[in-house]
Amino acid sequence: MSGASWAGRPLVGFDLETTGVDPETDRIVTGCVVRYGGGRPTEARTWLADPGVPIPAGATAVHGVTTEAARASGRPAADVVTEITAALVQAAAEGLPIVAMNAAFDLTMLDREARRYGVRPLSDLCAPVVLDPRVLDRQLDRYRRGGRTLTDLCRHYVVPLEVAHSADADAVAACALVWKLAARYQVLAHTELGELHDLQTRWAREQAEGLRDYFARTPGKERLAASVRLDWPMIPAPRGGAPR
């Protein structure tokens, strides 16, 4: 694939909503894989899982799914994880990049859920190229003040986000952000996808190191430094069996 071609081809957006923010112990509630751009209408596939555990009220307040709704209408979590993984494998087989905002969270969550249910994880099946608007924005506009959440980036780059924390809306918005970034920063559009993936691996590590150092030198935040992970686009699975 030529370096100038990827920005005009489809992007495959990926997003999860979960029971919490710890990919080692929390569970998938909803997911979306969306095919965006490339001169075709947007196509989205969404999933609602029964996570097998209660959904905390705080998580419900974010994504709107209650324990009762997930139990009544959600599909078995193992089936959902299998199908999401297969959709991402198909994208990789087509040479399309996977777009995920804060990819290290969503891809790690999918990996741990796969291992929990005995599903072959994505990393065993392919090595997808990942585009993360969070990493790209922090690298290309590193001195801009303000937040860098998906909502913040959509506001800054004038990208519609109709229902934040809905997996399908978030996945579409992440793809639109990458398109806007590639249009604004032509170096992205003219960088070959594999090289861009490798660059993000380095940039994400540098960004995490900066955050870790900030915590370490800030009174009252020192303990947070140890929790900062440097891995991207996925935190390697710990040894010692399936996740809890």
Rank of each mutant, 00 (worst) to 15 (best):
A4F: 11
W6Q: 09
A7S: 07
G13I: 04
F14Y: 09
D15R: 11
G20Q: 05
P23Y: 00
E24C: 09
T25G: 11
I28K: 01
G31E: 03
C32Y: 02
V33D: 01
V33M: 03
V33K: 06
V33H: 00
V34A: 12
R35D: 06
Y36W: 08
G38K: 08
G39K: 14
W47H: 03
D50R: 10
G52T: 06
V53N: 08
I55H: 03
I55V: 02
I55G: 01
P56S: 01
P56H: 01
A57Q: 13
G58W: 12
G58D: 15
G58C: 10
G58F: 06
V65R: 06
E68F: 04
S73Q: 14
D79C: 06
T82K: 10
A86T: 15
A87K: 07
A87T: 14
V89E: 07
Q90V: 10
A91F: 06
G95L: 02
L96C: 05
M101L: 15
M101W: 11
F105Y: 04
D106K: 14
T108V: 09
M109F: 02
L110C: 11
E113C: 13
G118R: 12
D124C: 07
C126K: 00
A127T: 15
V129E: 03
V130I: 14
P133Q: 09
V135D: 08
D137I: 00
R138I: 00
L140S: 13
D141S: 07
R145T: 06
R145K: 15
G146Y: 03
G147T: 02
G147C: 02
L150I: 02
T151N: 14
L153P: 08
R155I: 07
H156C: 04
V158F: 05
V158L: 11
V158N: 09
P160H: 04
L161I: 04
L161V: 10
A164I: 05
H165S: 07
S166Y: 09
A171I: 07
V172G: 00
C175S: 03
V178Y: 01
V178R: 01
W179L: 12
K180S: 10
A182P: 13
A183C: 14
Q186D: 15
V187F: 05
V187Y: 03
A189Q: 06
H190G: 13
H197I: 06
Q200E: 11
R202N: 15
A204H: 13
E206A: 03
E206Y: 02
D213E: 14
Y214H: 15
A216L: 12
R217K: 14
T218F: 04
T218R: 09
P219I: 00
G220T: 09
K221D: 11
L224M: 15
A226L: 13
R229A: 01
L230S: 03
D231F: 03
D231R: 02
D231T: 08
P233E: 07
M234H: 05
P236K: 00
A237C: 11
P238Q: 02
G240E: 07
P243L: 12
R244N: 08
